[in-house]
């Protein structure tokens, strides 16, 4: 089995969030700087304080970004100072990972002081709430998507992401090189980062190894430099999985092509073919053919089924 690292619920620190969304939101940190690295955003949903400021704090969820807009600021500013402090302290501040003030509004002094005491980051952006919310939602959806790193190779073939699996040394990278030479595109070698976005599996390469391939005897090669920019792709939707197995390890070789095998990642099922590997079998041609067979089946043409229907008519009809 391929080794895997699974991380069902990734988190991102507030500091990371501030840095990665700077281009879009231009976030400044007003208070609670000490909490930037410690506090984690764990939910892809955001929240607005709303009634929580009036004392109804049951629904403050841990790990969500709290958005503070005009209505919250106005509500706080019309309270007397003592009430304001009470309202803020009531908020269950331990649970809150950070507060984002929109529209460059000026928060009350009391909030900043309390946040500094409790190491709760107070962030501010010039964007209005609705813009900030829509950006943050899509940013978090991608960043906090469940992800897994599989040992394998991901190749873009005819607009499909094809995941090649198999134990190390079986020839995945060499097969990938062959496929690249035939005009297909490398996404990731050795470590494939897979994220579940919606109902799709998207495959990426970890930043460091992007565009690189390790070929025994040659070492690490740079595919982009050697084959050009069209030989690499940054990400692909994974739609097919091909597993290489040593011939003697294959329990039951598929002979008819009627039964569909599946690989499941995060509950998403993709078609899987098991290809036995032995001397004299040209893997890249086999993989290319497997992809063509898959494309044809998806389009509704199944050669095996057709031939066998014909055969059954003959055998059954006598």
């Amino acid at each position: 089995m391929p080794s895997s690292k699974e991380n069902e619920s990734p988190k991102i620190s507030v500091a990371d969030f501030v840095e990665k969304s700077f281009a879009k939101l231009g976030i400044e940190v007003l208070a609670g700087k000490k909490g930037l690295h410690k506090k984690q955003i764990a939910s892809k949903r955001i929240q607005k304080f709303g009634l929580a400021l009036a004392g109804f704090t049951h629904y403050i969820n841990e790990g969500r970004i709290q958005i503070v807009g005009q209505s919250e600021i106005s509500y706080l500013s019309q309270l007397e100072s003592a009430k304001r402090i009470e309202a803020i302290n009531n908020l269950d501040l331990e649970k809150i990972c950070c507060i984002l003030i929109t529209k460059k509004l000026v928060p009350p002094e009391e909030l900043l002081n309390i946040a500094d005491e409790r190491n709760l980051p107070i962030l501010r952006t010039a964007q209005v709430s609705s813009n900030a919310i829509s950006y943050i939602s899509s940013f978090l959806l991608e960043t906090l998507a469940p992800q897994i790193t599989l040992h394998g190779v991901l190749i873009g073939m005819y607009e499909l992401g094809v995941l090649l699996l198999g134990e190390s040394g079986i020839g995945k990278s060499e097969c990938a090189l062959d496929l690249i030479a035939r005009g297909h595109r490398l996404v990731a070698d050795d470590a494939v980062l897979i994220k579940k976005l919606g109902e799709n599996l998207e495959g990426f390469s970890p930043e460091l190894t992007r565009g690189h391939l390790e070929i025994r005897g040659l070492g690490i090669i740079n595919v982009r430099d050697l084959f050009g920019v069209s030989a690499v792709a940054s990400c692909k939707k994974i739609e097919l999985c091909i597993e290489f197995q040593k011939w003697q390890d294959v329990l039951e070789v598929e002979r008819l092509g009627l039964d569909r095998q599946e690989k499941e990642i995060f509950g998403v099922k993709i078609t899987k073919y098991i290809l036995p590997v032995s001397a004299g079998r040209n893997l890249s041609t086999l993989v290319e053919t497997a992809v063509r067979v898959h494309l044809l089946k998806v389009a509704g043409f199944d050669a095996a089924q057709k031939l066998i229907a014909k055969h059954s008519a003959i055998v059954g009809g006598q």
């Binding site: 070789v253 002979r255 009627l258 066998i308 055969h311 059954s312 055998v315 059954g316 006598q318």
Partner: peptide, 14 residues
């Protein structure tokens, strides 16, 4: 009853 149909054939070949 079904004769040497596809799945039986596959079983034999295996």
């Amino acid at each position: 009853p079904l004769g040497l149909h596809a799945r039986a054939a596959a079983q034999l070949v295996r």
